[in-house]
């Protein structure tokens, strides 16, 4: 299962370079991310893995002085080409952030917000259906079905993060980007979300940035090791963790550096 050859390439990054003003954060990343797989991006802090993640849905656009060179294509379409509408792109590429960040609105409105602004539901019933199915897929429905009008911020940290996942998948994206989604959660909530990712993999391409080696090993099919703005090694997770080809990678995953 780990290196399934029939999984086709979903996202292709070629020579991606990112500059924050004068400083260069990424030095030419080449990476292929497969559909229906979880790809884990690992590496020490400041190595550029979050920066790369944010390039995929152009979240770096809003940072002043940030410049991106090279190409990233999703299904062969260049993300940075002028024909691409960034709002549509972000609807196709959902994102879950490090800190759970539900809107200070009701649970229902949190999930319904995306479908509403994109006009995905023609009627109230359809919207209800989207909210329900999104919350079910995020494994939160059973816990919140009786209090959909309660504030999203009244939930526990783990529930909030699952709400954010429900919000992201409510607009039916192809790709879900996760930036250390479990770093603010306890092990139980983390386990719930990891199970969820395994489930979501069937329909989405998932890219996750994580600092936990165990998490990367547990949930991902492929792993890319970043170091100082470069991809040092990229391959099947099993191979990276059991038989890394690069010395740096081995040192990092065995806890010698990083």
């Amino acid at each position: 299962m780990s290196d399934n050859p029939q999984n086709k390439v979903k996202i292709e990054a070629r020579d991606v370079q990112v500059f924050y003003g004068e400083a260069q954060a990424l030095h030419g990343i080449d990476l292929d991310l497969n559909a229906n797989e979880v790809t884990a991006l690992i590496g020490p802090s400041g190595c550029g893995k979050s920066t790369f993640l944010r390039c995929i849905n152009r979240m770096n656009d809003v940072i002043d002085g940030c410049r991106v060179a090279g190409t990233i294509t999703i299904d062969g379409q260049d993300v940075y080409s002028p024909e691409i509408d960034v709002v549509e792109l972000r609807a196709r590429v959902g994102m879950v952030f490090q800190k759970p960040n539900p809107f200070p609105k009701s649970i229902y409105d949190n999930v319904a917000y995306g479908p509403r602004i994109h006009g995905l539901a023609q009627s109230r019933e359809q919207l209800d259906h989207i909210v329900e199915s999104s919350l079910k897929r995020a494994g939160l429905w059973a816990e919140v079905r009786d209090r959909l009008s309660a504030s999203g911020t009244s939930l526990s940290g783990g529930q909030q993060q699952r709400l954010c996942i429900a919000r992201a998948i409510a607009v039916s994206p192809d790709v879900v980007l996760m930036d250390e989604p479990c770093s603010a959660l306890d092990p139980i909530a983390t386990a719930v979300i990891e199970e969820l990712m395994e489930e979501l993999r069937k329909d989405y391409t998932i890219v996750i940035v994580t600092h936990s080696m165990q998490q990367a090993a547990r949930i991902s099919q492929r792993t890319a090791y970043f170091h100082l703005g470069n991809v040092v090694e990229h391959g099947a997770t099993q191979q990276i963790f059991t038989n890394p080809k690069n010395q740096q990678t081995e040192a990092y995953i065995s806890g010698k550096i990083g």
Binding site: M59, V87, M95, P102, Y113, I117, A168
Partner: peptide, 18 residues
Amino acid sequence: IPPSIREAAMGVGASRLQ
């Protein structure tokens, strides 16, 4: 207003005006 709220909205594809 915490930037996380802006990021959350942009993440689901809200335009700048939205």
